[in-house]
């Protein structure tokens, strides 16, 4: 193949654009705030009243233990602000739940904030977030 100067420049630009592309779609697809708005119906959230527990540093993003609790909550939404899809879980507590708390394990694509939004029995919403540093991402592609 005969590589001309013009061809080489075009190639360099093309490669640059291709490597940037996945990063751009990553940021654009995260719908954390939309999910929270859909859950609260646009209502304002207050800080406090809900706690979210997760390790400060997670070595493996594939399984990060997370627990949430909120006194008197009927439902808790967990979202991951830095995942390709922000949704993690929506927990609804029935009449037999002893306390509004649950624990699970989640995947995190990278260092990011985990947000918990609780729907209280009186219809108000509480919100808490926690930053988790991830050494190895859990959404491998």
């Amino acid at each position: 193949m005969n590589l001309t100067r013009r061809g080489a420049i075009a190639l360099a630009f093309g490669a640059g654009a291709a490597t940037m592309l996945p990063l751009r779609t990553w940021a654009a697809t995260n719908n954390a705030e939309e999910l929270i708005a859909a859950f609260t119906g646009g209502a304002a959230t207050t800080e406090g009243g809900v706690t979210i527990g997760a390790p400060e540093i997670a070595e493996n993003g594939n399984t990060v233990p997370v627990d949430v609790s909120a006194e008197g909550a009927t439902a808790i939404l967990i979202v991951a602000a830095g995942n390709p899809n922000a949704g993690v879980a929506e927990i609804t507590f029935g009449p037999l739940a002893a306390r509004s708390a649950a624990a699970t394990r989640v995947r995190l694509a990278g260092t990011q904030d985990l947000v918990a939004v609780a729907r209280m029995a009186d219809g108000s919403y509480a919100r808490a977030s926690r930053n988790v540093k991830v050494t190895i991402g859990g959404c491998g592609g």
């Binding site: 991951a80 995942n83 899809n85 609804t92 029935g94 394990r105």
Partner: peptide, 12 residues
């Protein structure tokens, strides 16, 4: 009902 969880792909 005790608990119901809507699960997204982000769960391990």
């Amino acid at each position: 009902e005790v608990i119901r969880i809507k699960v997204e792909p982000a769960v391990s």
